[in-house]
Structures are given as structure tokens and as C-alpha cells.
Design a protein around this nucleic acid. Structure first.
Lengths: 208, 208
DNA sequence: GTCTATAGGTTGATAGAC
DNA sequence: GTCTATCAACCTATAGAC
């Protein structure tokens, strides 16, 4: 599925890597998202990646090793979040839009992976350890947005009574909830749209 | 563990139920929350419930049937949420406190169950169907709080520019995020406390 | 690095006695 | 309703050849 065909990079000595390792990881992530972690077995991963079962164990030692790699890959894009706020223009509205879209996109990818880690204590602990090491978590997003709001407040563009970080929490929470609802395949009733949430949030912040 | 001792209800025909069914359900829910769905095997459930493995299949037909029962049990308390808002006093602050606490308590119980359902497509679909039937989901909480805010607004106790439902979404989201973070065993950094969030939210709503 | 073959262990589910 | 005993299916992981 994702195996390399002949590419144009300069030849190296020895047998070229066939890309099996990457194909296995990609297959595992795809299976995890589409069919749930219970289906991430060496057999199914190998079949989807187009390699043998033994190859899975050769590259990742055991199932836990494979899943750990899947987690790290799945949580990767979070690191771009803080930068996204910094990169955006000085306009509050622009920042909120960019921030919300980036956060929800990340969550759409990461939530299935995080939910999967809850399926077993060992996995849960492994991911917790990883998130602690890397200092990942919602507090990151809250801090980034909170700092920005504090700066806006200092510039007089946000009401003085506002608590920047507690307020950032409200906004992050709305994005989180929307993303979480999207994970449930059958959500009949709609939540407020992103535009409505952003508009409502801005209206609350605006100085009189 | 939860087996009946002699009770005072009038005698029925035939062999009285020994309480095995309830013990099995309770054991499955406990295992699910504490060790993850992967450990919810007939063997472990039976051991914890103090019954035989065959008994599990007798009462719930198959694994899917047992897990479906666990979901229904785990999502039960949600129905009390809307009532909780209605029951609370007329004071905005009181309502927010009561609402947030009720919602977070519910989520602490329900989130592990919802995450577990993501572990396999079949379970995921089964729970989605159940939630659709029962019209469960975050929109319920948003609607309940939004309606209340709209009433407060009509009474002049909330700023006129506020969009009640989009704003309710912000508040629900903050509770959701706090509860979700609690699910991750190792959250080093703190999020804003419930008091801070409630105070910030009230400050945003207050008329000038 | 990748394969085939297989060991060794769990699991879901059924049969049949009590 | 509950038990013991059992089985086929499936899983992780290793050994050893290429």
C-alpha cells in the first residue's frame, strides 16, 4: 500500500531499505483509526502493509512497541499549535479562526489515538508517560491562547475584567467538544458552528 | 460482591435469581473503568463477579451483548443533567456551579465507557446507534444551559449581545475538557480550576 | 530485511450435568 | 441459574532459511 517504488535518491551501500517499517506504521495507524485498536493485530497490519507478520515484530519488537510508535506519530502535529498562534497576524479574529481550525484538525487526528490508549492499562500508562515527557496536553493550548489574550488585554483590545487563561479554557473547550462529538459516528443534533462560537467569544471579549 | 441476601419481596415461582446478572454487569463496568476494555474478558468478569464463565454467556448471550449493557448502564446518569438545571435556584452563579459539577461527575463516569467503545468498529456502531436512539450527546447539555441563559438574558441579567447557545457551548466545553484531562493518568500541568472558569464566565456575561 | 512455519497461550462460545 | 469441561479460532512472538 505505502511501500516505496523506485525513488530518485542517490544509491547507498548495502541492501536498500524497502520501506517496510514505514508501511507497517502507516498501516497500523490507518487500522487504528478506521477499525479500532482491537483490529490492530500483527496479522491485519502485515496484510495491509504488504509484509509478513514476522516483519512487524522485527521492526517494532512487540505489539506495545508498535503501538507506542503509532501514538508518537499520531500526536506529532500538536507541536505546531503554539507556533500557529505566533505565526498568525495581529488581528484577534484571525488568530481565533486559525487557532480553532488548527486545534480541531489536530484533535480529529489525535482523539482516536488517545481513545485507543485507554483500552488497556499498559498502553494507558505508556502514553501517559510519553505525554508527561513531552509535556503534551490541553494545558498547552490553553496557555498559548491565554498568553495571547493577555497581550491583547494589555493593548486594550480585550476587556480589563477578563481572566485571560480561564477564558482561553472556555474557547479551547468548545473546540475540544466539537471534535469529540465528531468522533461519535451518529450525532444527529448539531452543536453551534465554529463561526458562531468564534463570534460569540469575540462579542464577550470586546470592550464596551 | 453484589449478590443478594434474603430480601422481603413476596415469593415467586421457580428458582429465585441469585443476583449473578447484576454482579456480572457491575464487574464488567469496574473492569472497564480500571483496566480498560481489553481486560473485559469473560474469564476476568466471571472471576470478579464470583460466577462461572458460562454464566456470563447465559445472561448476556455474547460479548457484544454484555458490553452493550455496560454502555447503557454507564451512560445512564446523563438523563439527570437537564433536570439538574431546572431544579437549581434562580441564581445564575448557583446554576453554573451545580451544572458544572453534575456534568463533570457524569463525564468522569461516562468518558471511560465512551472511549472503550472506540476500540472496535462493531462496538462503536452499537453505541452510536444507542446514543442516536436515546438522543444522547453534548448537544443536550448545550441546549439545556443555552435555554437557561436565554431566559436570564430576557430578564436582563445577561448582556444583550450574548448568543445564549454558542456561549453555553463555551461553558460545556470547558467542563468537558477538564474531565477529559482527568482521564489521562499523568497530567502534570494544571488547567484553570472550576471556580476560575465559572468566575470568568460570569464576568463575561455580566451587563455593564 | 524479509520470508515461512510453528510454538505456546488466550479467548469466545457451546454442551450437558446438576 | 450455575457449574465443569471442552474446542475451534485467533493472537503474540520466536526460530531459522534466504
Amino acid at each position: 500500500m505505502l511501500r516505496n517504488s523506485a525513488s530518485d535518491v542517490p544509491r547507498r551501500r548495502g541492501r536498500p531499505p524497502a520501506g517496510g517499517r514505514e508501511a507497517i506504521l502507516a498501516a497500523a495507524l490507518e487500522l487504528l483509526r478506521e477499525r479500532g485498536i482491537a483490529r490492530v493485530t500483527a496479522r491485519e497490519v502485515a496484510a495491509l502493509a504488504g509484509v509478513s507478520e514476522a516483519s512487524v515484530f522485527y521492526h517494532y519488537k512487540d505489539r506495545a512497541g508498535l503501538l507506542r510508535a503509532v501514538f508518537e506519530q499520531g500526536l506529532q502535529p500538536l507541536k505546531e499549535l503554539a507556533e500557529s498562534v505566533a505565526r498568525a497576524g495581529p488581528d484577534l479574529h484571525q488568530v481565533l479562526v486559525r487557532y480553532a481550525i488548527t486545534l480541531e484538525q489536530f484533535l480529529d487526528q489525535a482523539l482516536p489515538v488517545m481513545a485507543a490508549a485507554q483500552s488497556d492499562v499498559a498502553l494507558r500508562d505508556a502514553m501517559a508517560e510519553y505525554m508527561t515527557e513531552q509535556d503534551l496536553g490541553p494545558h498547552r493550548g490553553v496557555a498559548a491562547l491565554g498568553d495571547f489574550l493577555a497581550a491583547e488585554q494589555a493593548a486594550g483590545r480585550v476587556r480589563a475584567e477578563v481572566d485571560p487563561h480561564a477564558t482561553a479554557m472556555l474557547f479551547v473547550g468548545a473546540c475540544y467538544t466539537r471534535a469529540a462529538q465528531r468522533q461519535m459516528p451518529a450525532h444527529v443534533a448539531e452543536l453551534p458552528s465554529l463561526e458562531e462560537v468564534i463570534d460569540a467569544f469575540e462579542a464577550l471579549l470586546a470592550p464596551a
